[in-house]
Design a protein around this nucleic acid. Sequence first.
DNA 1: CTGTTAGCGCGTTCAA
DNA 2: TTGAACGCGCTAACAG
Lengths: 331, 331
Amino acid sequence: MTTIKDVAKRAGVAVSTASLAINQSDRVSKETAEKVLRAAAELQYQKNGWARDLKMKKTMMIGLVLHDLSGSFYAPIIKGIEQTLHSYGYGLIACSTIGENLGTAERFLRERRVDGVVVFSSDIKDEVLSEISREKFPVVVLDREFSHPNLYSVVVNNDQGGYQAAEHLIKLGHKAIGYISGPSNNRDSELRTIGFTKCLTEHGYPSIPFAWHIKGDYSQNGGYQAAKLLLQQKTLPTGVFVSNDQMAIGALEAFSEAGIQVPETIQIIGFDDIELSRYIRPSLTTIKQPKFEIGATAAHLIIQHIQGDEPNKHTVLPTEVIQRESTGPLY
Amino acid sequence: MTTIKDVAKRAGVAVSTASLAINQSDRVSKETAEKVLRAAAELQYQKNGWARDLKMKKTMMIGLVLHDLSGSFYAPIIKGIEQTLHSYGYGLIACSTIGENLGTAERFLRERRVDGVVVFSSDIKDEVLSEISREKFPVVVLDREFSHPNLYSVVVNNDQGGYQAAEHLIKLGHKAIGYISGPSNNRDSELRTIGFTKCLTEHGYPSIPFAWHIKGDYSQNGGYQAAKLLLQQKTLPTGVFVSNDQMAIGALEAFSEAGIQVPETIQIIGFDDIELSRYIRPSLTTIKQPKFEIGATAAHLIIQHIQGDEPNKHTVLPTEVIQRESTGPLY
DNA sequence: CTGTTAGCGCGTTCAA
DNA sequence: TTGAACGCGCTAACAG
C-alpha cells in the first residue's frame, strides 16, 4: 500500500509538499509538482479516503438507506435525490436493509461515514433514528412522520390520494364501489382509507359493504387473492379502489383469468403509479405519488441543513390522478 | 461531536479501556463496561467509522458502481451480489456514474473506501480500471472483458445467446427471418450477431437480406423506429430477433399500432429478459441473461480474492431461451 | 483487568 | 516555497 509518504520520499520532498502538489495547490513550484505527480504515478499511488475524511470532517457524500436497493418503486426517488445532490456537488451512496442486514445500514447511520442520510426503510426503527440524528448530521425519513431534532420527514398526502381515488370513481358515475385496502397495521394504508371513505361520505355514499372491502398485503399476489375473494361475492362493484399498484396488477390478473373485462365490466384505480402500471394491459389508472419530487425535496432538506438553514421539518407532497385504460366512461 | 475520549473521561477510564468496552471485548470487567456504556449513552456517543477503518485497514464493505442506480435492469444483479456478500458478512454500498458524476464513483474506486468493487458502467474507462485494480483491491467488471492483474470479469455468453435465438426461430419453422440489431460499435451486440448468423448458416439459411436487418440503439424508441422501418419493406419476415428486450418492446408497440398481430402474423424474440417482458401483452419470448448469477459470481470472486484465493479471471455465463407468447407454432 | 504508548495516512499549521 | 510537528478518532501491543 503506497502512501503519500512513499511518494514524498521518491520525489525527494516533504510529505506536506507532496500533499500540496497532489491537491493541485499553487503554493508549490511547477517542477516540484511535476516531480511529485510523476512519483505518484510510478508508485501507483491512490489516496486514502478514510484519512482524508478523518481530517476534513466531511465527505461530501450523502447516504441513502433503502429497504431494497433493487426495488423498482424507488427508482424515481433515487433519481430525484441524485440530481439534486449533484447540483450541489454532493455524491450519493446507497445501501439496503434487506435480509436482516442492518449491519451496513447502521454503520452508515451511526458511524458518520456520510454527511447526512435519507432513510426509506421501515427496518430502521424510530428509536434508532432518534439516536442518530444529531447536530450536523441531518436525517430525512420518507416513510413516516416522526419528530426529532435534526430529523426531517417528507411524505405524500395519502389522505388526499384516497380522496382523489374516490372522487375519480364517483365522477365516472360509479354507484357500486369496492375497496381492496392495504395491511391494517400500515399507516399509509390507514390514511388512504380515511381519505377514501371521507370522500364517499361527503358525496352521500353509504360506507363500503363488508363484502366489497377486502384487505390485502400490498403484494401482487395479495391483490390477486383479494380479487379472487371479491369475485366470490354475489354481486360485484363496478369500480374498485386498490390501495397500491402492486396489488392492482394482481387483481387485474385475477379478473382477466375470470374472464371479467376491465374497464367494461369492472373498473380499477390503483395507487403509487409504479412503472409497470403504464405497460400492463389494460394500463392502470392510478393515484400518482410524486416520487421524483419526494427525492428532490429530501435532498434539498439535507443540503439546507448542512448549510446552516432551518427548513421545515415536515413536508407533505400532493398526489395526482393519472387516468389510463382501467377506468373510463361507464358502459 | 463527542468522541471516545469524552466517553473515557466521563467514565473515568482510559481511552483504550473505553474502546474495548464499546467493542464488546471480554477483557474488561462487567462494571467498567457498564460504566463506559452508560457514559456513551449519556453523551450520545457514535463511533467514527473513518477512524476505525483507518486503523483496521478494511471496511467489510464492497462497492458497486452502476451507470444508473435506478435502472431496473440491474435489480436481479444487485440481489445476487447482495445475498452473496451478506453470507460472508460483507455489506454492499452502491453509487452511480450517471450525469457526468464520476466524482463519487471514482472516490469509491481510487480512495480505498471499500475492500473491493464491482463495476457495471461503461462510464468507467479501461484505463481507470487498470489504474485502480491493485493487490488487495479486487475489481470485477460486468460489462466487458478486460485483462489486468487483480481484475476479474463476468460476462454472459452473448454469442451463445444469439445462436439460441436463431435456433428457436428455426425450430418453430420460420423461413423468413429478420433482425433488429444493437448499435454497431457495441461489443455485446456484435457477439449476438455473430452467434445468430452462425446458427443460420449452419442450418443452411442464407444471410439476412439487407431489407430485414435494421440497426437500433438498444432503446425502446429505437426499437419502435426500427420496426417502423421494417414495416415499410415490401415483404415481412415471419420471425424477428431483436437484440434486446427494450427494443423488442418498442417494436411490439409499432406492430400493434400497425395492426399486425403478434405472434399470428409476425413473431418476436428478444434478449435480456427484463422484468417488463413478462408483463407486456403479448409477453415476450426472450434470451435470458442469468442476472442473479452474474451478481452472485461477481461477489464470490471478490470474496475469494480477498481471502487469498486466485479464482479464474474470466467467467462466461450461459444464456437460456424463455418461451412466452410472442413466439410459438406457426399459423 | 486496566492504563500507557504508538501509530494508521492524511491535511494543516507555523516556522524556516 | 518548503519541511517539521501536530492532530483527527480509534485500536493494538505492551506494560503494569
